[in-house]
């Protein structure tokens, strides 16, 4: 369950969405659901998840909540952020 916050169709937002889609297809096929929130349309929602940076990817579940900001161009870091892949072996153990 991932939520991507954007503010309008900016190049950064589009890049982020494309990157997210690609990463999810590669690493979490069939196990993900992406919800895109456009803050220009729903500015009230910025407060709920404490969104400052755009774009921000929020992983609400499983706990703890994680936020990944940026256009998600660094796949490795996105995976670490989503807890999909360990940063290194020790941390998982």
């Amino acid at each position: 369950m991932l939520r991507l916050y954007v503010a309008g169709q900016t190049p950064k937002s589009l890049t982020a969405f494309a990157n997210l889609k690609r990463i999810c297809e590669e690493h979490l096929p069939g196990r993900y659901q992406i919800e895109v929130v456009d803050l220009l349309k729903n500015p009230m929602l910025a407060k709920g998840d404490q969104i400052l940076a755009i774009p921000t990817l929020v992983r609400k579940l499983p706990e703890p909540m994680r936020k990944i900001i940026g256009d998600l161009s660094n796949t490795e870091r996105v995976l670490v952020g989503l807890d999909v892949r360990p940063a290194d072996g020790r941390e998982r153990a």
């Binding site: 503010a7 982020a16 774009p55 921000t56 990944i68 900001i69 940026g70 256009d71 161009s73």
Partner: peptide, 9 residues
């Protein structure tokens, strides 16, 4: 977690 370009929009 920070990855790539972003702004404070």
């Amino acid at each position: 977690e920070e990855t790539g370009e972003y702004d404070l929009e």
